[in-house]
Amino acid sequence: MLIRRGAPEVTLADLDAMPFVARVVRTFEDGLEPFELEIGPAGLEFAPLEQGKPGRCRLKLFRPREGKERLCAFFYKRSNLAWSRDRFSYGGVEFRPEQATDEDLQSWRSWLLSGFDPERRPLRWRRAFLFDVPE
């Protein structure tokens, strides 16, 4: 289940026009656990809902390098402090869209739901990156 919110200029039809993004959205739609999907200029962000509100675990999907095909699935926790913009990185996966299998997408979803259980890290997971992760 997905609750969508975010930039009004990005329509769901736009997302559906990108086959890989549509696959990711479908993966998070399928299943009983509710997620919030935030659509922003820098990418998509998924957060499992806890008691109706987005929890602190997040998956951000974005393109790290302008003009390149590769995408990054970045996992992080938001700060407990309302005023803080700190992000606590749990690493991520850099990939080419055609490489990502349904199992990969499922593993991202279940890792997010597990609260980043170190025993359940996704395949090709890396702790650190050399590029900036957009806000």
Binding site: S79, N80, L81, D86, F88
Partner: peptide
Amino acid sequence: PVEEDFAR
């Protein structure tokens, strides 16, 4: 501690 999950 304020950022760790247990602090919540």
